[in-house]
Amino acid sequence: MIEIMSSAALCTVQDFGRLTSRQYGVGTAGAMDQLSLAAANIMLGNPENSASIEIPIFPFKVRFTQDCDFSVTGTEGEVSLDNSRLPTWWAYSAKAGQVLTIHQPKKGCRAYLALGGGIDVPIVLGSRSTQLRGEFGGLEGRMLQKGDCLPAIQATDNRPLDFGMTSPLSALAFEQENTIELRVVTAAEYDEYATEAKELFWNNRWKVTPQSNRYGYRLHGTEIRPEKPIETLSHGIVPGVIQIPPGGQPIIQLRDAQPSGGYPKFGTVIEADLWRIGQAAIGKHIVFKEVSLKDAAAAMQQNKRYLDDVKQMISLQEAFV
């Protein structure tokens, strides 16, 4: 059990999200960086899909009201447990009464705090993720607040933890000169843009604007216009879809986006790269690279290999401790 000690606006409880309720108008929600969420849980021996807290605002402070294993992943930086300092991407066992502070990151922008056993909020429509528009899931369907208490599911493993893991920000090439490359599969309206507009899109260095959040990332760069105005009927969309509204500035729809939309779609960021957007802070730059489904599958394999390596390290540890 933990109690939130700091202002927690924009912090929410998330797992992998709600994947089979879009037919009711329900968006997926779910963690912005699912690779970090999975790793945080693996480090504690939890199922990968266990709920944790997604934290985009720092410093974030919680008090453990009972002994509890925890891990902090997502960002690279530091945490304090009372007066002792630890890096993020670390698993440790806290004692009742200890206060954990997650400090401003050095790299990345969303931290995940996982608890041994996983955060225990009700499963609604197959997920514990917070659905803000529907006001359900997570803790009472809302963002966390100072004073909130969150229980953990009883953990089965009580061995004390004290180890770290190298983050995907370091293990999988993340950024170069403040620029993050995202791989894209083109979408329905791609061919309604002229060659020059397409080249602009691929060659632009897009800036992540302050209007970027869990709903979508609004990018700024040279405007992209279709040959003629595009009319589309409302249809289903997935997280990662890059829409280009009439203003010509792309929006990447993300986990809290509506499950349907009507703006022209230029392409979709591949699922394997969505975690990179989750760690792309406001002010960073994004470049897009066109890939095939084959390349996308290879990228997903690379993510899986990373998690497999994490698991292998943990299971070796467990076998001997």
């Binding site: 890096p87 670390w90 004290d162 180890f163 893991m165 190298t166 990373y306 390596d309 994490v310 390290m313």
Partner: peptide, 9 residues
């Protein structure tokens, strides 16, 4: 100490 991805204190 980093051993592969694992970090030991």
């Amino acid at each position: 100490i980093h051993v592969g991805l694992l970090q030991l204190p």
